[in-house]
């Protein structure tokens, strides 16, 4: 709760800061809309050739695109700016301000930087998910619940992944480039996982966990996610949060020189 409060406060700071730049507003909105157009055009071209892609109907694919946009938006909102700043601060040895605050340092480092414009993507993603849910017709409370749970689990996994990468900069130089790999592979998540060859499916599940973050939640909208899968997602989220926490603490110990 405390974490959410702090995140919202940082978010507000970010939004208030950017609201002074009206020209940015238009440009950034245009950017998000172009991204949306790109996604929809892709769907359009594919659906003009077949009504069903690997078992996914039009509205399923739209939901998938929605989750893709939403998760990408949340990453852009908090995760990417904060983690990039974290890596920079670690390299330049100026994590100090985050460490002298009487607040969990991981929390401050994780939500401290915000790119407010990604809220457009969050809104567009939510809109697409909502539209597709309405098109599906009646959605039970249970289905909504699984959607929320799998979304949160997916976000937790992706966040842990970024945190782990960022933390590796406590030991290694030049990890920024590895983050580009994430962006490249994330592109693949806008389509159903099942269309990819086996090795890529594994890479997208284990190496870079975009499958869990995007495909799983979208599948709940098709009503094709069993209980064991939801449980698995929650378990994966818990494990990865725990692991990245350990890595963060180890990194801090190294930063303050307790381990060397």
């Amino acid at each position: 709760m405390r974490a959410l409060g702090l995140a919202l406060r940082f978010l507000w700071i970010g939004v208030a800061g950017q609201m002074q730049y009206r020209a940015n507003f238009v440009a950034q909105l245009a950017r998000s809309l172009v991204g949306l157009a790109l996604g929809l055009a892709g769907l359009g071209v594919v659906l003009s050739n077949t009504p069903v892609l690997a078992g996914w109907r039009a509205r399923d694919l739209l939901a998938l695109l929605g989750v893709y946009t939403l998760v990408g938006g949340v990453i852009g909102l908090f995760v990417r700016p904060s983690m990039q700043a974290l890596m920079r601060d670690v390299h330049l040895g100026r994590l100090d301000f985050a460490l002298v605050l009487p607040e969990d340092a991981q929390l401050v480092a994780s939500v401290g930087r915000v790119n407010a414009w990604s809220l457009f993507d969050v809104a567009l993603g939510l809109g697409m998910i909502g539209y597709s849910a309405l098109a599906t017709g009646h959605m039970g409370i249970l289905q909504v619940l699984t959607l929320v749970v799998t979304l949160l689990a997916g976000l937790a996994v992706v966040y842990s992944f970024w945190l782990a990468l960022a933390c590796s900069s406590f030991w290694l130089l030049k990890v920024e480039n590895v983050l580009l790999v994430f962006d490249d592979l994330y592109e693949a998540a806008r389509w159903p996982l099942s269309i990819y060859p086996g090795w890529l499916r594994w890479a997208l599940t284990l190496l870079v966990p975009v499958a869990l973050a995007v495909t799983f939640p979208a599948q709940t909208l098709r009503g094709q996610l069993g209980w064991w899968q939801v449980t698995g997602a929650v378990a994966a989220a818990s494990v990865s949060l725990w692991l990245s926490r350990r890595l963060w603490l180890a990194g801090l110990r190294r930063y303050s020189g307790a381990s060397s």
């Binding site: 800061g17 950017q18 401050v108």
Partner: peptide, 28 residues
């Protein structure tokens, strides 16, 4: 405790300081 460094700033560049005060009030 508090730490002040002459060459490094923690106030948000885009915002009035009053806005950041409110945030640090919450953190502390």
């Amino acid at each position: 405790i508090a730490l002040v460094m002459g060459q490094r700033y923690r106030l948000d560049w885009h915002l009035p300081a009053a806005e950041s005060f409110e945030m640090y009030r919450a953190i502390y």
